[in-house]
């Protein structure tokens, strides 16, 4: 401390007075704003366009009647029902599997290489293109197990596709359960499994449900995996068993736009289907967001 006094640092100054940077900042921020606006605008145009055209076709008959006159009139009830069955089937298969996987990862704390292996396969499974799931379903369920083109094949294919998102959602909500809950239960003499069943799962349930609801939106709108495994363009029949092939809303849109001979009469029906699908997805997102908000306010 003594004697090491240096010469005072010369006042260097010399910074330019006028800065281009303020202009750069304005321009930069403007472009960020622009990118958001373009995104929002696109969504807006899409929604307005499809809702405006779709709402003209959708009425009670459209929702409840089968198609007539070679797909140029009537309703789309079989397609709605088909999509319902496929979605229900897929969720029923994927939910227990996904939750079980998440429970294992969170509650049974496996060794880290096991966690990494499973995490890696979930991530990669999530990245597989949907049409590849379709190929897998075709080779395994339709051909190998000989389920044919059916609700069963389609549901199973969709279930595998949606499995990763259900696992991630469940895992996240299980991790959010406070450790103290588990400790409290174990301290009262409950076994590991009892703790999971009676304390952990009920607490995590809203989070898991949110994940499932979002998955419903995704499954219901998926087309590529069901083209070769479940869907058919035109049937007046309602499905009679899990081995029936079905109409489905998303595939119906595709078929109306690319097949058939009365394009001008088919297009309005496609608008109706797209409108129904959009409504479904928007409702599903709204419910999921609502549950999440409620959950957040509950835990602060």
């Amino acid at each position: 401390m003594n004697g090491t006094k240096t010469v005072p640092f010369p006042r260097a100054g010399g910074f330019p007075k006028f800065h281009l940077r303020n202009l750069t900042q304005r321009i930069g921020f403007f472009f960020l704003f622009l990118s958001v606006m373009v995104t929002v605008l696109f969504l807006g145009v899409l929604l307005v366009f499809i809702v405006a055209r779709g709402i003209q076709v959708v009425n009670w008959e459209f929702l409840t009647q089968p198609p007539r006159e070679a797909m140029t009139a009537g309703g789309v009830a079989p397609a709605i029902l088909g999509t319902f069955y496929l979605t229900l089937g897929a969720i029923l298969c994927a939910l227990p599997l996904g939750v079980a996987c998440a429970i294992y990862l969170v509650e049974y704390t496996p060794k880290s290489y096991v966690v990494n292996l499973i995490r890696m396969s979930i991530n990669n499974l999530a990245g597989v293109p949907s049409v590849v799931f379709g190929l897998f379903g075709l080779a395994i369920f339709v051909k190998f197990f000989n389920f044919g083109v059916s609700i069963l094949s389609g549901s199973l294919t969709l279930a595998i596709m949606v499995l990763p998102s259900i696992i991630s959602a469940s895992q996240e909500s299980l991790l959010a359960v406070p450790q103290s809950y588990r400790e409290a239960s174990l301290a009262l003499g409950a076994s590991h499994w009892q703790t999971i069943r009676k304390v952990v799962i009920p607490t995590a349930l809203p989070g898991i449900l949110t994940g499932v609801i979002l998955s419903i939106g995704r499954v219901a709108g998926e087309t590529a995996p069901i083209i070769f495994t479940a869907a058919t363009f035109y049937t007046r029949m309602y499905p009679s068993s899990v081995f029936s092939e079905v109409m489905a809303l998303p595939y119906h849109i595709y078929a109306l736009m690319t097949e058939g001979v009365h394009a001008d009469k088919q297009a309005p029906i496609a608008f109706g289907c797209a409108f129904i699908l959009l409504c479904l997805v928007l409702c599903v997102s709204a419910i999921a967001i609502y549950i999440r908000q409620k959950q957040r306010s509950k835990y602060g």
Binding site: T39, F42, L43, L46, F49, I50, S130, L214, G217, R218, A220, G221, E222, T223, A224, P250, Y251, I253, Y254, M257, A270, A274, L277, L278, V281, L282, V284, S285, I289
Partner: peptide, 14 residues
């Protein structure tokens, strides 16, 4: 999130 949730068939149709 909604933009992410819209099915690809709807984008295709649009």
């Amino acid at each position: 999130e909604v933009l992410a949730g819209i099915p690809s068939i709807v984008y295709g149709f649009f």
